[in-house]
Design a protein around this nucleic acid. Structure first.
Length: 154
DNA sequence: GCCAACGTTGGC
DNA sequence: GCCAACGTTGGC
């Protein structure tokens, strides 16, 4: 089992939106970055725990927990010319983009902000991908040690 | 294969 | 709104 962090802008799709979805489950579509795609297509497995991270908002940070409930499958929204993330180079015969399904687990009692996480950047979270300079990936791996440490902050 | 131009992300 | 970081594109 591996641990993950997935970013979303809360004005686009928030932890509360996930809570309100049928079965509290959402397909994580629209990712158009090869590294992130590879993680969804190849590495994320059913049952893997995921941090839900709110980005580009007043208080960026980890707001909840979810779980992978369907492993990588083609992001069919890429075929739709009307879709915001349409990609004519992705076809049903040769899908270029993939997504996973994630299911709500729980909200944290409070947001563990990016600001707070950074205070451990020279200690427990020295290797945390989120804190690496310039890292804009929307999906990133979390080690078990990092996962457990972050939850002790709650 | 190089690299300049351009677009996007996302914190501040 | 600014801008640093960095991925992608496309001319050569």
């Amino acid at each position: 089992m591996r641990y993950w962090l997935m970013k979303s802008e809360p004005n686009e799709f928030s932890i509360d939106d996930l809570y309100l979805r049928p079965n509290q489950t959402e397909q994580w579509d629209g990712v158009r970055n090869y590294q992130a795609r590879n993680m969804m297509r190849d590495e994320m497995k059913n049952g893997d725990p995921v941090f839900f991270y709110h980005s580009n908002c007043d208080v960026p940070g980890i707001v909840g927990l979810m779980r992978v409930t369907r492993e990588g499958y083609p992001d069919h929204f890429a075929y739709d010319p009307e879709d915001k993330h349409h990609d004519p180079k992705s076809t049903p015969d040769a899908p270029r983009w993939f997504m996973v399904d994630v299911t709500f687990e729980r909200k944290l009692n409070r947001t563990i902000s990016l600001h707070e996480l950074k205070t451990y950047a020279d200690a427990e979270l020295a290797e945390f991908a989120l804190l690496r300079r310039g890292n804009r990936l929307s999906i990133m791996p979390v080690t078990q040690t990092q996962w457990e440490f972050i939850l002790t902050l709650e």
